[in-house]
Design a protein around this nucleic acid. Sequence first.
DNA 1: CTGCTTCTCAACGAAATCTTGACAAACCGG
DNA 2: CCGGTTTGTCAAGATTTCGTTGAGAAGCAG
Lengths: 225, 225
Amino acid sequence: MSPKTIVVVEDEPIIAAAVAARLRKETFRVEVAGDGPSGVDLCNRLRPDLVVLDVMLPGFDGLEVCRRIQKERAVPVLMLTARDSETDLLVGFGVGADDYMTKPFSTRELVARVHALLRRASRAQEPNGAVIRIGEIEVDPASRRARRAGDQVHLTPLEFDLLYLLASHPDSVYTRSQLLTQVWGYNDDSSARTVDSHVVSLRKKLGAELVRTVHGVGYAVGGDG
Amino acid sequence: MSPKTIVVVEDEPIIAAAVAARLRKETFRVEVAGDGPSGVDLCNRLRPDLVVLDVMLPGFDGLEVCRRIQKERAVPVLMLTARDSETDLLVGFGVGADDYMTKPFSTRELVARVHALLRRASRAQEPNGAVIRIGEIEVDPASRRARRAGDQVHLTPLEFDLLYLLASHPDSVYTRSQLLTQVWGYNDDSSARTVDSHVVSLRKKLGAELVRTVHGVGYAVGGDG
DNA sequence: CTGCTTCTCAACGAAATCTTGACAAACCGG
DNA sequence: CCGGTTTGTCAAGATTTCGTTGAGAAGCAG
Protein backbone atom coordinates (compact mmCIF):
# COMPACT_ATOMS: atom_id res chain seq x y z
CA MET A 1 0.00 0.00 0.00
CA SER A 2 1.47 3.34 -1.01
CA PRO A 3 1.80 5.84 1.82
CA LYS A 4 -1.13 8.15 2.47
CA THR A 5 -0.58 11.66 1.16
CA ILE A 6 -1.35 14.72 3.25
CA VAL A 7 -1.31 18.33 2.08
CA VAL A 8 -0.67 21.01 4.69
CA VAL A 9 -1.76 24.55 3.84
CA GLU A 10 -0.26 26.91 6.41
CA ASP A 11 1.45 30.26 6.00
CA GLU A 12 3.46 30.29 9.21
CA PRO A 13 6.67 28.46 8.31
CA ILE A 14 7.42 27.34 11.85
CA ILE A 15 4.06 25.68 12.34
CA ALA A 16 4.06 24.24 8.83
CA ALA A 17 7.48 22.69 9.36
CA ALA A 18 6.57 21.25 12.73
CA VAL A 19 3.35 19.72 11.47
CA ALA A 20 5.00 18.31 8.36
CA ALA A 21 7.85 16.80 10.31
CA ARG A 22 5.57 15.17 12.82
CA LEU A 23 3.32 13.70 10.16
CA ARG A 24 6.28 12.41 8.14
CA LYS A 25 7.33 10.55 11.24
CA GLU A 26 4.03 8.70 10.90
CA THR A 27 5.20 7.61 7.44
CA PHE A 28 2.79 9.92 5.68
CA ARG A 29 3.86 11.64 2.52
CA VAL A 30 3.51 15.35 3.30
CA GLU A 31 3.52 18.35 0.96
CA VAL A 32 3.21 21.96 2.12
CA ALA A 33 1.67 25.03 0.53
CA GLY A 34 2.02 28.53 1.98
CA ASP A 35 -1.04 30.27 0.59
CA GLY A 36 -4.55 29.60 -0.64
CA PRO A 37 -4.10 29.41 -4.42
CA SER A 38 -1.09 27.14 -4.31
CA GLY A 39 -2.86 25.01 -1.72
CA VAL A 40 -5.78 24.41 -4.05
CA ASP A 41 -3.38 23.75 -6.90
CA LEU A 42 -1.40 21.27 -4.86
CA CYS A 43 -4.52 19.40 -3.83
CA ASN A 44 -5.78 19.15 -7.38
CA ARG A 45 -2.48 17.71 -8.54
CA LEU A 46 -1.68 15.35 -5.68
CA ARG A 47 -5.21 14.27 -4.79
CA PRO A 48 -4.19 13.81 -1.16
CA ASP A 49 -5.95 11.53 1.31
CA LEU A 50 -6.32 14.38 3.78
CA VAL A 51 -5.79 18.13 3.98
CA VAL A 52 -4.67 20.13 7.01
CA LEU A 53 -5.87 23.64 6.47
CA ASP A 54 -5.23 26.91 8.29
CA VAL A 55 -8.18 29.30 8.30
CA MET A 56 -6.08 32.46 7.96
CA LEU A 57 -4.16 32.42 4.71
CA PRO A 58 -2.76 34.81 2.10
CA GLY A 59 -4.46 34.78 -1.30
CA PHE A 60 -7.83 33.57 -0.19
CA ASP A 61 -8.64 32.07 3.16
CA GLY A 62 -9.03 28.50 4.32
CA LEU A 63 -12.77 28.50 3.88
CA GLU A 64 -12.42 29.32 0.22
CA VAL A 65 -9.66 26.76 -0.16
CA CYS A 66 -11.84 24.16 1.50
CA ARG A 67 -14.76 24.98 -0.74
CA ARG A 68 -12.69 24.68 -3.90
CA ILE A 69 -11.02 21.46 -2.84
CA GLN A 70 -14.27 19.83 -1.87
CA LYS A 71 -15.84 20.91 -5.09
CA GLU A 72 -13.27 18.84 -6.95
CA ARG A 73 -13.66 15.67 -4.92
CA ALA A 74 -14.50 14.53 -1.40
CA VAL A 75 -11.48 14.63 0.90
CA PRO A 76 -11.24 14.87 4.70
CA VAL A 77 -10.21 18.33 5.90
CA LEU A 78 -8.79 19.18 9.31
CA MET A 79 -9.12 22.90 9.98
CA LEU A 80 -6.74 24.91 12.14
CA THR A 81 -8.27 28.00 13.72
CA ALA A 82 -6.60 30.78 15.65
CA ARG A 83 -9.61 31.81 17.69
CA ASP A 84 -12.01 29.67 19.58
CA SER A 85 -15.01 31.75 18.66
CA GLU A 86 -17.90 29.53 17.85
CA THR A 87 -18.87 31.33 14.69
CA ASP A 88 -15.52 30.48 13.17
CA LEU A 89 -16.12 26.87 13.97
CA LEU A 90 -19.59 26.75 12.54
CA VAL A 91 -18.67 28.57 9.39
CA GLY A 92 -15.76 26.20 9.04
CA PHE A 93 -17.99 23.17 9.28
CA GLY A 94 -20.40 24.75 6.86
CA VAL A 95 -17.88 24.50 4.05
CA GLY A 96 -17.21 20.83 4.56
CA ALA A 97 -14.41 20.54 7.10
CA ASP A 98 -14.49 17.27 9.01
CA ASP A 99 -12.68 18.30 12.18
CA TYR A 100 -11.03 21.34 13.68
CA MET A 101 -8.27 22.24 16.12
CA THR A 102 -7.67 25.52 17.90
CA LYS A 103 -4.14 26.90 18.06
CA PRO A 104 -2.03 26.30 19.94
CA PHE A 105 -2.34 22.53 19.75
CA SER A 106 -0.16 19.58 20.58
CA THR A 107 1.27 17.67 17.65
CA ARG A 108 0.29 14.53 19.50
CA GLU A 109 -3.35 15.51 19.32
CA LEU A 110 -2.93 16.48 15.70
CA VAL A 111 -1.61 13.04 14.85
CA ALA A 112 -4.45 11.39 16.70
CA ARG A 113 -7.05 13.39 14.84
CA VAL A 114 -5.40 12.77 11.48
CA HIS A 115 -5.46 9.05 12.08
CA ALA A 116 -9.07 9.24 13.21
CA LEU A 117 -10.11 11.14 10.10
CA LEU A 118 -8.33 8.76 7.78
CA ARG A 119 -9.86 5.79 9.52
CA ARG A 120 -13.29 7.30 9.27
CA ALA A 121 -12.76 8.11 5.60
CA SER A 122 -11.55 4.66 4.65
CA ARG A 123 -14.34 3.06 6.58
CA ALA A 124 -16.84 5.21 4.72
CA GLN A 125 -15.47 4.11 1.38
CA GLU A 126 -15.86 0.41 1.92
CA PRO A 127 -15.00 -1.62 -0.08
CA ASN A 128 -12.05 0.57 -0.93
CA GLY A 129 -10.13 0.15 -4.13
CA ALA A 130 -12.08 -2.88 -5.20
CA VAL A 131 -13.75 -2.80 -8.58
CA ILE A 132 -17.50 -2.83 -8.15
CA ARG A 133 -19.65 -4.78 -10.57
CA ILE A 134 -23.34 -4.10 -11.10
CA GLY A 135 -24.70 -6.23 -13.90
CA GLU A 136 -22.69 -5.39 -17.01
CA ILE A 137 -21.31 -2.23 -15.40
CA GLU A 138 -17.87 -2.03 -13.78
CA VAL A 139 -16.78 0.84 -11.55
CA ASP A 140 -13.10 1.19 -10.72
CA PRO A 141 -12.42 3.82 -8.04
CA ALA A 142 -8.65 3.55 -8.44
CA SER A 143 -8.65 4.75 -12.03
CA ARG A 144 -12.01 6.50 -11.71
CA ARG A 145 -13.23 4.70 -14.80
CA ALA A 146 -16.42 2.90 -15.64
CA ARG A 147 -17.07 0.18 -18.20
CA ARG A 148 -20.23 -1.10 -19.77
CA ALA A 149 -19.99 -4.63 -21.13
CA GLY A 150 -16.23 -4.18 -21.18
CA ASP A 151 -16.27 -0.92 -23.15
CA GLN A 152 -14.97 2.09 -21.32
CA VAL A 153 -17.45 4.91 -20.85
CA HIS A 154 -16.35 8.44 -20.09
CA LEU A 155 -17.89 9.89 -16.95
CA THR A 156 -17.54 13.43 -15.63
CA PRO A 157 -16.23 13.83 -12.06
CA LEU A 158 -19.65 14.29 -10.52
CA GLU A 159 -21.14 11.48 -12.54
CA PHE A 160 -18.43 9.14 -11.34
CA ASP A 161 -18.72 10.10 -7.68
CA LEU A 162 -22.47 9.75 -7.83
CA LEU A 163 -22.27 6.34 -9.45
CA TYR A 164 -19.57 5.19 -7.09
CA LEU A 165 -21.51 6.12 -3.99
CA LEU A 166 -24.66 4.44 -5.23
CA ALA A 167 -22.81 1.37 -6.46
CA SER A 168 -20.93 1.04 -3.18
CA HIS A 169 -24.20 0.22 -1.47
CA PRO A 170 -26.18 -1.75 -4.02
CA ASP A 171 -29.93 -1.53 -3.73
CA SER A 172 -29.81 1.02 -0.93
CA VAL A 173 -31.97 4.04 -1.56
CA TYR A 174 -30.40 7.49 -1.23
CA THR A 175 -32.42 10.68 -0.99
CA ARG A 176 -31.39 13.64 -3.10
CA SER A 177 -30.45 15.38 0.10
CA GLN A 178 -28.12 12.56 1.09
CA LEU A 179 -26.55 12.48 -2.34
CA LEU A 180 -25.97 16.23 -2.31
CA THR A 181 -24.38 16.01 1.11
CA GLN A 182 -22.10 13.11 0.31
CA VAL A 183 -21.20 13.74 -3.32
CA TRP A 184 -21.51 17.49 -3.69
CA GLY A 185 -20.41 18.29 -0.13
CA TYR A 186 -23.23 20.69 0.56
CA ASN A 187 -26.94 20.43 0.88
CA ASP A 188 -28.92 23.21 -0.68
CA ASP A 189 -32.56 22.24 -0.95
CA SER A 190 -33.07 24.40 -4.00
CA SER A 191 -30.61 22.39 -6.05
CA ALA A 192 -32.12 19.01 -5.38
CA ARG A 193 -33.16 18.67 -8.98
CA THR A 194 -29.55 18.97 -10.07
CA VAL A 195 -29.15 15.40 -8.92
CA ASP A 196 -31.77 14.38 -11.47
CA SER A 197 -29.76 15.85 -14.30
CA HIS A 198 -26.76 13.75 -13.43
CA VAL A 199 -28.88 10.67 -13.06
CA VAL A 200 -30.13 11.32 -16.57
CA SER A 201 -26.54 11.45 -17.79
CA LEU A 202 -25.66 8.20 -16.05
CA ARG A 203 -28.64 6.45 -17.56
CA LYS A 204 -27.81 7.76 -21.00
CA LYS A 205 -24.27 6.52 -20.77
CA LEU A 206 -24.70 3.29 -18.84
CA GLY A 207 -28.24 2.21 -19.56
CA ALA A 208 -31.59 3.37 -18.28
CA GLU A 209 -32.02 0.30 -16.09
CA LEU A 210 -28.92 1.00 -14.03
CA VAL A 211 -30.43 3.58 -11.73
CA ARG A 212 -33.71 2.77 -10.08
CA THR A 213 -36.03 5.66 -9.22
CA VAL A 214 -37.76 5.29 -5.89
CA HIS A 215 -40.66 7.64 -6.29
CA GLY A 216 -40.95 10.17 -3.51
CA VAL A 217 -37.64 9.13 -2.00
CA GLY A 218 -34.61 9.08 -4.24
CA TYR A 219 -32.41 6.74 -6.26
CA ALA A 220 -30.64 3.40 -5.99
CA VAL A 221 -28.59 1.12 -8.23
CA GLY A 222 -28.18 -2.63 -8.41
CA GLY A 223 -30.14 -5.17 -6.51
CA ASP A 224 -32.27 -7.56 -8.48
CA GLY A 225 -33.42 -4.69 -10.63
CA MET B 1 -10.62 6.90 18.09
CA SER B 2 -12.17 10.27 17.33
CA PRO B 3 -14.48 11.55 20.04
CA LYS B 4 -18.19 10.96 19.70
CA THR B 5 -20.07 14.09 18.74
CA ILE B 6 -23.21 15.17 20.54
CA VAL B 7 -25.54 18.00 19.57
CA VAL B 8 -27.59 19.63 22.32
CA VAL B 9 -30.69 21.57 21.26
CA GLU B 10 -31.93 23.56 24.23
CA ASP B 11 -33.09 27.16 24.50
CA GLU B 12 -32.44 27.69 28.20
CA PRO B 13 -28.80 28.78 28.31
CA ILE B 14 -28.23 27.60 31.87
CA ILE B 15 -29.37 24.07 31.18
CA ALA B 16 -27.63 23.96 27.83
CA ALA B 17 -24.35 25.06 29.36
CA ALA B 18 -24.59 22.60 32.22
CA VAL B 19 -25.37 19.68 29.94
CA ALA B 20 -22.66 20.60 27.49
CA ALA B 21 -20.05 21.01 30.22
CA ARG B 22 -20.90 17.70 31.82
CA LEU B 23 -20.79 15.84 28.51
CA ARG B 24 -17.51 17.44 27.53
CA LYS B 25 -16.09 16.08 30.75
CA GLU B 26 -16.89 12.66 29.32
CA THR B 27 -14.61 13.58 26.39
CA PHE B 28 -17.53 13.99 24.04
CA ARG B 29 -17.37 16.71 21.49
CA VAL B 30 -20.45 18.86 22.17
CA GLU B 31 -22.11 21.56 20.09
CA VAL B 32 -25.17 23.53 21.18
CA ALA B 33 -28.09 25.04 19.28
CA GLY B 34 -30.66 27.34 20.87
CA ASP B 35 -33.67 26.86 18.62
CA GLY B 36 -35.28 24.33 16.28
CA PRO B 37 -34.07 25.49 12.87
CA SER B 38 -30.45 25.91 13.88
CA GLY B 39 -30.62 22.57 15.67
CA VAL B 40 -31.65 20.79 12.50
CA ASP B 41 -29.02 22.67 10.58
CA LEU B 42 -26.31 21.79 13.06
CA CYS B 43 -27.22 18.12 12.98
CA ASN B 44 -27.16 17.98 9.21
CA ARG B 45 -23.71 19.51 9.16
CA LEU B 46 -22.05 17.77 12.09
CA ARG B 47 -23.69 14.38 11.74
CA PRO B 48 -23.51 13.79 15.47
CA ASP B 49 -23.58 10.37 17.10
CA LEU B 50 -26.36 11.46 19.41
CA VAL B 51 -28.78 14.36 19.87
CA VAL B 52 -30.10 15.74 23.17
CA LEU B 53 -33.32 17.52 22.37
CA ASP B 54 -35.61 19.75 24.41
CA VAL B 55 -39.30 19.49 23.55
CA MET B 56 -40.10 23.17 24.00
CA LEU B 57 -38.13 25.24 21.53
CA PRO B 58 -38.37 28.50 19.60
CA GLY B 59 -38.77 28.19 15.84
CA PHE B 60 -40.39 24.81 15.73
CA ASP B 61 -40.59 22.34 18.58
CA GLY B 62 -38.59 19.28 19.45
CA LEU B 63 -40.96 16.91 17.73
CA GLU B 64 -40.49 18.67 14.44
CA VAL B 65 -36.74 18.81 14.97
CA CYS B 66 -36.69 15.10 15.71
CA ARG B 67 -38.68 14.34 12.62
CA ARG B 68 -36.42 16.37 10.36
CA ILE B 69 -33.24 14.97 11.81
CA GLN B 70 -34.42 11.40 11.52
CA LYS B 71 -35.51 12.07 7.98
CA GLU B 72 -31.94 12.77 7.06
CA ARG B 73 -30.35 9.81 8.76
CA ALA B 74 -30.89 7.55 11.74
CA VAL B 75 -29.43 8.96 14.94
CA PRO B 76 -30.24 8.28 18.61
CA VAL B 77 -32.27 11.05 20.23
CA LEU B 78 -32.63 11.72 23.95
CA MET B 79 -35.65 13.93 24.62
CA LEU B 80 -35.94 16.35 27.52
CA THR B 81 -39.47 17.07 28.68
CA ALA B 82 -40.78 19.45 31.29
CA ARG B 83 -43.57 17.26 32.63
CA ASP B 84 -44.28 13.58 32.88
CA SER B 85 -47.48 13.98 30.92
CA GLU B 86 -45.44 15.24 28.02
CA THR B 87 -43.39 12.10 28.13
CA ASP B 88 -46.49 9.97 27.85
CA LEU B 89 -47.56 12.01 24.89
CA LEU B 90 -44.24 11.55 23.16
CA VAL B 91 -44.15 7.83 23.77
CA GLY B 92 -47.66 7.61 22.43
CA PHE B 93 -46.80 9.51 19.32
CA GLY B 94 -43.58 7.62 18.92
CA VAL B 95 -41.83 10.53 17.25
CA GLY B 96 -38.68 8.47 16.98
CA ALA B 97 -36.89 9.46 20.15
CA ASP B 98 -34.97 6.65 21.81
CA ASP B 99 -35.13 7.78 25.41
CA TYR B 100 -36.76 10.45 27.55
CA MET B 101 -35.88 12.39 30.68
CA THR B 102 -38.17 14.61 32.69
CA LYS B 103 -36.84 17.90 34.05
CA PRO B 104 -35.36 18.42 36.47
CA PHE B 105 -32.82 15.65 36.03
CA SER B 106 -29.42 14.89 37.42
CA THR B 107 -26.51 15.25 35.05
CA ARG B 108 -25.27 11.94 36.39
CA GLU B 109 -28.35 10.23 35.07
CA LEU B 110 -28.05 12.10 31.82
CA VAL B 111 -24.53 10.83 31.33
CA ALA B 112 -25.60 7.29 32.10
CA ARG B 113 -28.38 7.41 29.55
CA VAL B 114 -26.17 8.94 26.92
CA HIS B 115 -23.66 6.14 27.32
CA ALA B 116 -26.42 3.58 27.23
CA LEU B 117 -27.88 5.02 24.04
CA LEU B 118 -24.52 5.14 22.32
CA ARG B 119 -23.80 1.56 23.31
CA ARG B 120 -27.14 0.47 22.00
CA ALA B 121 -26.65 2.43 18.77
CA SER B 122 -23.24 0.99 18.03
CA ARG B 123 -24.58 -2.48 18.59
CA ALA B 124 -27.50 -1.78 16.30
CA GLN B 125 -25.30 -0.41 13.53
CA GLU B 126 -25.45 -3.58 11.52
CA PRO B 127 -24.92 -2.91 7.80
CA ASN B 128 -28.38 -1.98 6.68
CA GLY B 129 -31.57 -1.55 8.61
CA ALA B 130 -32.75 -4.99 9.48
CA VAL B 131 -35.22 -6.69 7.19
CA ILE B 132 -38.51 -7.24 8.96
CA ARG B 133 -40.43 -10.42 8.39
CA ILE B 134 -44.15 -10.84 9.08
CA GLY B 135 -45.39 -14.22 7.95
CA GLU B 136 -44.63 -14.49 4.24
CA ILE B 137 -44.03 -10.74 3.97
CA GLU B 138 -40.56 -9.16 4.00
CA VAL B 139 -39.92 -5.43 4.44
CA ASP B 140 -36.47 -3.99 3.68
CA PRO B 141 -36.07 -0.36 4.70
CA ALA B 142 -32.68 0.10 2.99
CA SER B 143 -33.97 -0.71 -0.47
CA ARG B 144 -37.53 0.24 0.41
CA ARG B 145 -38.75 -2.98 -1.09
CA ALA B 146 -41.40 -5.41 0.05
CA ARG B 147 -41.76 -9.04 -0.88
CA ARG B 148 -44.59 -11.47 -0.57
CA ALA B 149 -43.51 -15.11 -0.59
CA GLY B 150 -40.30 -13.98 -2.23
CA ASP B 151 -41.95 -12.02 -5.04
CA GLN B 152 -41.30 -8.32 -5.04
CA VAL B 153 -44.36 -6.12 -4.70
CA HIS B 154 -44.31 -2.47 -5.68
CA LEU B 155 -45.46 -0.12 -2.93
CA THR B 156 -45.98 3.63 -3.16
CA PRO B 157 -44.07 5.83 -0.70
CA LEU B 158 -46.92 6.16 1.77
CA GLU B 159 -47.80 2.52 1.51
CA PHE B 160 -44.26 1.54 2.32
CA ASP B 161 -43.88 3.93 5.24
CA LEU B 162 -47.19 2.83 6.65
CA LEU B 163 -46.30 -0.84 6.38
CA TYR B 164 -42.84 -0.29 7.80
CA LEU B 165 -44.14 1.52 10.85
CA LEU B 166 -46.76 -1.11 11.56
CA ALA B 167 -44.37 -3.98 10.89
CA SER B 168 -41.72 -2.44 13.11
CA HIS B 169 -44.01 -2.96 16.08
CA PRO B 170 -45.83 -6.21 15.39
CA ASP B 171 -49.18 -6.58 17.03
CA SER B 172 -49.17 -3.00 18.32
CA VAL B 173 -52.35 -1.14 17.53
CA TYR B 174 -52.00 2.32 16.02
CA THR B 175 -54.84 4.80 15.84
CA ARG B 176 -55.41 6.66 12.61
CA SER B 177 -54.28 9.78 14.41
CA GLN B 178 -50.98 8.18 15.37
CA LEU B 179 -50.43 6.88 11.87
CA LEU B 180 -51.12 10.29 10.38
CA THR B 181 -48.71 11.91 12.78
CA GLN B 182 -45.89 9.49 12.22
CA VAL B 183 -46.23 8.61 8.56
CA TRP B 184 -47.84 11.69 7.10
CA GLY B 185 -46.18 14.16 9.45
CA TYR B 186 -49.35 16.01 10.28
CA ASN B 187 -52.61 15.21 11.95
CA ASP B 188 -55.70 16.62 10.32
CA ASP B 189 -58.80 14.98 11.72
CA SER B 190 -60.71 15.45 8.51
CA SER B 191 -58.35 13.21 6.61
CA ALA B 192 -58.60 10.20 8.87
CA ARG B 193 -60.20 8.21 6.07
CA THR B 194 -57.09 8.64 3.98
CA VAL B 195 -55.42 6.04 6.15
CA ASP B 196 -58.13 3.55 5.25
CA SER B 197 -57.48 3.95 1.56
CA HIS B 198 -53.85 3.06 1.97
CA VAL B 199 -54.67 0.13 4.20
CA VAL B 200 -56.89 -1.12 1.42
CA SER B 201 -54.00 -0.86 -1.01
CA LEU B 202 -51.69 -2.76 1.31
CA ARG B 203 -54.20 -5.54 1.74
CA LYS B 204 -54.75 -5.75 -1.98
CA LYS B 205 -51.05 -6.04 -2.67
CA LEU B 206 -49.88 -8.11 0.26
CA GLY B 207 -52.91 -10.08 1.35
CA ALA B 208 -56.03 -9.12 3.28
CA GLU B 209 -54.84 -10.90 6.41
CA LEU B 210 -51.74 -8.75 6.78
CA VAL B 211 -53.37 -5.76 8.39
CA ARG B 212 -55.74 -6.41 11.22
CA THR B 213 -58.56 -3.94 11.93
CA VAL B 214 -59.19 -3.17 15.57
CA HIS B 215 -62.71 -1.84 15.47
CA GLY B 216 -63.07 1.59 17.04
CA VAL B 217 -59.32 1.95 17.53
CA GLY B 218 -57.13 1.50 14.50
CA TYR B 219 -54.86 -0.99 12.75
CA ALA B 220 -52.14 -3.48 13.57
CA VAL B 221 -49.88 -5.88 11.69
CA GLY B 222 -48.63 -9.33 12.57
CA GLY B 223 -48.91 -10.90 15.95
CA ASP B 224 -51.30 -13.81 16.09
CA GLY B 225 -52.44 -13.06 12.58
C1' DC C 1 -9.58 35.40 -26.12
C1' DT C 2 -11.71 31.17 -27.97
C1' DG C 3 -13.41 26.76 -27.81
C1' DC C 4 -14.54 22.93 -25.00
C1' DT C 5 -16.34 20.50 -21.10
C1' DT C 6 -18.96 20.38 -17.19
C1' DC C 7 -22.31 21.94 -14.04
C1' DT C 8 -26.59 24.33 -12.52
C1' DC C 9 -31.18 25.46 -12.84
C1' DA C 10 -35.64 26.56 -14.58
C1' DA C 11 -39.43 25.01 -17.29
C1' DC C 12 -42.63 21.84 -19.41
C1' DG C 13 -45.31 17.79 -20.08
C1' DA C 14 -45.79 13.19 -18.32
C1' DA C 15 -46.28 9.92 -14.85
C1' DA C 16 -47.17 8.47 -10.32
C1' DT C 17 -49.34 9.17 -6.22
C1' DC C 18 -52.55 11.09 -2.89
C1' DT C 19 -56.92 12.81 -1.34
C1' DT C 20 -61.62 13.02 -1.02
C1' DG C 21 -66.38 11.92 -1.08
C1' DA C 22 -70.03 8.81 -1.82
C1' DC C 23 -72.04 4.64 -0.87
C1' DA C 24 -72.08 -0.29 0.58
C1' DA C 25 -70.86 -3.40 4.07
C1' DA C 26 -69.66 -4.70 8.64
C1' DC C 27 -69.83 -4.08 13.48
C1' DC C 28 -71.89 -3.41 18.11
C1' DG C 29 -74.78 -2.48 22.01
C1' DG C 30 -79.32 -2.98 23.32
C1' DC D 1 -83.37 -7.48 14.75
C1' DC D 2 -82.44 -2.23 14.78
C1' DG D 3 -80.19 2.04 14.44
C1' DG D 4 -76.07 4.38 14.92
C1' DT D 5 -71.40 4.09 14.16
C1' DT D 6 -67.31 2.46 12.02
C1' DT D 7 -64.95 0.44 8.18
C1' DG D 8 -64.29 -1.26 3.08
C1' DT D 9 -64.28 -0.02 -1.54
C1' DC D 10 -63.75 2.65 -5.57
C1' DA D 11 -62.64 6.12 -8.87
C1' DA D 12 -62.34 10.99 -10.37
C1' DG D 13 -59.76 14.95 -9.63
C1' DA D 14 -55.97 17.33 -7.33
C1' DT D 15 -51.39 17.26 -6.22
C1' DT D 16 -46.74 15.93 -6.11
C1' DT D 17 -42.83 14.09 -8.21
C1' DC D 18 -40.13 12.79 -12.18
C1' DG D 19 -37.84 12.85 -17.01
C1' DT D 20 -36.12 15.72 -20.31
C1' DT D 21 -34.37 19.55 -22.47
C1' DG D 22 -31.71 23.49 -23.23
C1' DA D 23 -29.77 27.94 -22.06
C1' DG D 24 -26.43 30.08 -19.46
C1' DA D 25 -22.48 30.10 -15.99
C1' DA D 26 -18.17 28.59 -14.62
C1' DG D 27 -13.91 26.58 -15.20
C1' DC D 28 -9.99 25.17 -17.97
C1' DA D 29 -6.56 24.40 -21.80
C1' DG D 30 -4.52 26.23 -25.65
